[in-house]
Amino acid sequence: MQIPYTVEPRPDTGVYNAKLGIWLFLASEVMLFGALFSSYVLLRVGATTWPHGYEHLNIPLATVNTVVLITSSVTMVMSWASLALKNLRKFRVYMGATVGLACVFLVIKGFEYAAKFEHGLYPSESTFMAIYFTLTGLHGLHIIGGIVVNCYLLGPGSKMWKTDPARFTNRVEIAGLYWHFVDLVWIFLFPVLYLL
């Protein structure tokens, strides 16, 4: 027997399996970053002094990174829309752009980290630097995860377009939901760490 509702939605719930699965996974991610955010609040409220992000961190670089990540979200959703319009070539272009922008984000992040280390600012420096490195590091790991998934869909995974285009489109949508969530986390990290 085949597992039902891998492609078409179940009539009473209205979703296909992976759609529900990814949202549940994102729900757990919300709780993961929520707990870290809550820890941040607790530590900051309890601290005697807390530096402003702009005193230690590079706002121009982070702003560029915000723009890069939001743009990659748009290219991601465009790659899905291209598949919905049955255009595999445009999908490749947009998906390639998404992966490229994600790499740009990581490179910029790498420069930021390197600059911090050069000035002797390590996670052990202060609670602020600790939370900065932990949150951005964990977010960076999520970016890497997204790059791996997107590269798979761009490369070997796209063979499915020939055999089961509807399912492949769904896969891209699922990867997109994850990618937008990673973008969404950054949208909060940016002001919380850099601007406040």
Binding site: S28, E29, M31, L32, F33, G34, A35, L36, S39, L43, Y122, P123, S124, T127, A130, I131, F133, T134, L138
Partner: peptide, 21 residues
């Protein structure tokens, strides 16, 4: 479970990177 995963990551940072969470 994710909050414990977060706590585990913070404790790993304390142990390995010398932070003081």
């Amino acid at each position: 479970f994710p909050p414990l995963e977060a706590a585990g990551v913070l404790q790993l940072m304390d142990r390995l990177a010398g932070t003081s969470f």
